[in-house]
Each structure stands twice: as C-alpha cells, then as structure tokens.
Amino acid sequence: MNFQDYEIYIVEIQNLFLHECFKINNTFIMSTMDDYLGKINIYSDTINKWEREMLDELTMKFYSQHKKIYNRFEIYASSYAIFFTNKDHLRFNQKEATSINYKNYLIKLISDQVNKEIDYFRMKDIDYRSLSHLPGLPGIPIYSIQGETPIMEAFVYNHEDDNWYHLMGDIATQYSVGIGSQYEKEDLNNKTSDIEYQVITSNRSDEMYLSLRSAIRRINESFYFNNYSSIFIYLMTTIEALAYKEYRGFKEVRIIIQHIIAKDRQDYDKLADYFKELSKVYRTEVVHNGKDLNDFFNDEEEIQSFLTKLLDIIKEYIIKVYEMNIKSFDDLYIAKNKRNKELHG
C-alpha cells in the first residue's frame, strides 16, 4: 500500500466510539485524535507498522491544519474514518472543488464508501431491538444536533501541497440519535476472526458474494427507516433477491432458504411453518393489501422482536452461503438439491 497511490479522505461518524484504531478494508476508523497523537498501543491488530506510521503522519497534518474542527470532534466525542481509495476509482479534482454540485457528489460518494465498511459493526451487533446503539451515517457532523445547521462535510488530502482541504456540501437530512456503540480495547481484539468481519472484508467478486453483500447493505439501510412497515417490506424484497437471479414467487424463495439453513428435518419443518405464516398473514396483508404492521401487534417491543427474528434468519442464510463458498446461483441450486437429499432422504 503506497501512500502516493491513493486518494485520502476523512469523514466524521456519529455515535461510534472506538478505543483503538480499527481497519476495515482500506478504511481506518478512530476516535478523537488526542487519543492517538504521541501515544503508543492505540492500534488494533488489524493495522501493521507501516500503516501506523502513515496514520500518525496524516493525523498530525490534519491536527495542525484544522485544529478548530478537531476540537469539535473532541468536544462531541465523535469518531472519524480515514478512507483510502484508488485514484482511478475516485480522484479529487481541485479545479472543480469550487462547484457545490461537485462537492455534494464527492462527499456523498466518500460517505457511502465508508458507510459500507461500518456495515461490519451493524451486522455484528445491531438489530431492531437495539436501534439506540446505531452508529450515525458518515459525513454528517454530530454537532448538527446541538442546534447548528447540519451540513454534510468531508476532508480530502492533497498530495501536491501536503494539505487537508475542507469540503462542505448540502444540508443533511438524517442523523442518528441514541447512545451509539462503544467498543473498548478488549472488544476489538480478535475481531478479524469474526465471520462477519470476513464477509465484509472479502475480496470476492462473484455473483453470489455480490448478492449477499447487497443484502447486508439493504439490511443496514433499513435500520435508519422510521416506519416498521417500510422495514418489513424492504426485508421481504431483500429475501426475494437472495435465492434467484430473476423474480420468483416467495414460496420458491423460502424453499431455497429452508434447505440452506435447516439443521435437520425438524428444523426444516419449523422454518416452513414460520415462512408460511409470514407470507400468508403478514406479507400478503402489509405488502399487497396496504395494512400497517402495527395492526398485528400490541406494542413496539413485539414488532421489534418480530422484525429481529426475520433479520436473524436472513443473516444466518447470508453467513451459511458464504461459509459454503457458493459462488453462483447455479452452485446454490446444486447445494439446495444436495441438502434436500440430506434432509428428506
């Protein structure tokens, strides 16, 4: 990883507090810079010696050039991500940097890239019963909820003049509330052995992996919805895209899922009963007849548990397909037929 070969950006992340710098792909996530400058043993084992030296240099430059902004980071205890990307993929054009349209486009693109990386924390630790622990969306300053105008922003490092440039874009329309997630040093140890970390950081590019990764992205997007019925509909459309290239009826989709994740015949039958009820009672009424999910439950806690059960099944399927090293939909159908023989004889 050559410093000069990459475009380098910083975006802030609300409600995500790390006690060590943590690497996910080419994104380095850390809390306020005073925790790092001039200290040792503040990097997780995801980061090598060369990367530590590089990050020290970059954060020192940022600190010296943008102390006021750094102080804001510190006051509101937010985290920030230093994001590296190949110049051929995302190149900063200084001549266009005066254009608000260009800045908006760039900030949103950078923020979205970082957002995909922190899918790891959401996939690992968040469900619909713990939404108060959601990290915020990258690029939206946490100080915006303190009464100031929420402006999306990012910072770009210019290799030519050795400066960090501050980019400001549109007024933000969404930000996270709640207590957020905090990871102590012990929480970050051995994270690279997590199956969730392996899924998020995989360099696979086959059609099945891309389908699984898209499903993870959609699940994590749904955490920020403010309507439970919308979440349910989004999850159902996510499921339907996991089993076939083209659209199929829900019955065909759930049969694939049942075969892949069922532990035995009894478990298969339980899943079949669950999916039949899910389809007949909830999917038909909410998706097709326009009913609200609130019509079926007594309180919010019941709805959250209902959605979390569906979420857990989707995540179990994603992890199982990944662990089985299934690379294509054709391979998936072969695996389904093999499991059918194992389950039904």
Rank of each mutant, 00 (worst) to 15 (best):
L16K: 11
N15K: 15
G290H: 12
S44W: 15
I200N: 05
Q304K: 09
E186W: 13
E342P: 04
H259V: 00
Y175T: 07
S214H: 10
S205M: 09
E186M: 09
L37A: 04
Q174M: 15
F296D: 02
K108P: 00
L131C: 03
D45C: 07
P135Y: 15
I314R: 09
K185P: 00
K68P: 06
A272Y: 14
S328P: 03
L271V: 06
E246D: 06
R217G: 05
V177A: 03
K309W: 09
S214V: 03
V114T: 04
E323N: 14
Q182R: 14
D330G: 08
I10P: 03
E301P: 05
E301H: 10
N163T: 12
E20A: 10
H288K: 08
L343E: 04
N227A: 02
H344R: 10
N104L: 06
A272C: 07
Y244I: 01
F28E: 01
E51Y: 03
M123V: 01
F297D: 03
Y36Q: 03
T173F: 11
I75G: 12
R204L: 05
L310V: 02
A77P: 02
Y268E: 05
L109A: 04
I151R: 08
S214I: 03
L293P: 01
A215L: 08
F3C: 03
S305V: 07
I334M: 12
K280V: 00
L188V: 12
E184F: 10
N325S: 11
Y228Q: 01
D312T: 01
